[in-house]
Write a protein that binds this DNA or RNA. Sequence first.
RNA 1: GUGGAUGUGGCGAAGUGGUUAACGCACCGGAUUGUGGCUCCGGCACCCGUGGGUUCAAGUCCCAUCAUCCACCCCA
Length: 425
Amino acid sequence: MSIQRPKGTQDILPGTVEKWQYLEDTIRTVCREYGYEEIRTPMFEATELFQRGVGETTDIVNKEMYTFLDKGERSITLRPELTAAVCRAYAENKLYAWPQPVKLYYIGPMFRYERPQAGRFRQFHQFGIEVLGADKPVVDAEVISLVWTLYQRLGLTGLEVHINSVGCPTCRAEHKDKLLEFLKPHSHELCRDCQDRLERNPMRILDCKNPSCQAFTAGAPTTLDMLCPECKSHFEELQELLKAAGVVYKVDPRLVRGLDYYRKTAFEVLVEEIGAQSAICGGGRYDGLVAEIGGPPTPGIGFAMGMERALAAIEVQNKMPEFEKAGYAMIVALGQQAQRHGFAWVSALRKAGIPASIDLLGRSLKAQLKAADREGVKYALILGEEELNKGMAILRDLRVGEQEEVALNQVVSVLKDKFGEGVNA
RNA sequence: GUGGAUGUGGCGAAGUGGUUAACGCACCGGAUUGUGGCUCCGGCACCCGUGGGUUCAAGUCCCAUCAUCCACCCCA
């Protein structure tokens, strides 16, 4: 096997696509119920969009982007996430002129250059939503409640919804000062990673998993401690609304999301059972991002859900439904003459809305029936020389094991009858 | 980028230096001429990720390389 798929990518084969389709269908249903509409943006964008939109200090921009020059010497990047792109589309297509807020969702592949592991891929899929043009806490609550509803619909249990507020630029700056003040004396005792973070993004030290760092930061001021009145009441109102909606959540003051654009609300949904990469969903508010990209000042909030991780969770919790193979009719033709007739009959059946197939390998009767049986075929229509001469066909019910002769000109109506309402369902 | 584990037919899996590389599943064919699901019989790896090396002899030892998996960083 000389050529294989690129590292961190997957082939989704029959037998597995059904699961994806199920997930996608469930997502679309919930989005429809919530009044969200789908948006599709390019798989690649100008590199600058992500540099500005996601943030120069983030790992995504620093080490995880698939970036290349196209033939016109433009720097292009395979989308590592979609929030920035959706904001770009909002500004570029002047969606701010539409009735606000604009409620969007997307489903599709994202690309990040990372070492793959359980729950992490170079090409992975996200479902996400973005609400643009609304800044009230109800929006935050609706977004979180949509995720909550989706997981319930999928039958998932034991999920933890963590919420936090990282404040606005004003209170965040204040927090940063206080935090540095607190950490400086301990700086040499922090782990090597946190030493770096001290320079780069001190807030992230708060969610360092290193036990000793956690010990040092136990009493550190959190963003919650420093919220300005506006941010504070926003966060409080959000919690009231979540309670009202019956969403079970946990306030996690140490929840800090990796992307630069977050303001106020940040949240995550965790599932422990799926491995080290347990964040199944992450999101938050990003007022200011649209303006950053060149649009009018526009508040926004959204989240992204890892579909591979969601599928993993559904799988470990045994919540994946069984997918039965769709029953169809199989034309079993014997000999060239019969095959020609049979070929015409498959077309006729299909035209009548009855799913039908015919042997494509020129196999023996026995082999054809065996294959039909394996594929879960309900009815086999056997056409041989004898039958053709009589203008008949044998209709065999493979489930029951009984058969009868049917006049060829009645085949369609008889089968239509047998398949009943299931045909077009 | 760092660390660990693994690498035998489509899949799972034996093989602890020495003749023709077990077995199970799957697949293909057959068991009186045109009938599936059970059973029985038969077939299916010039070769053990790749390249070197050690040895009279290697799937079995050594080195390198590649790939996959898991973990770290970080994230969905």
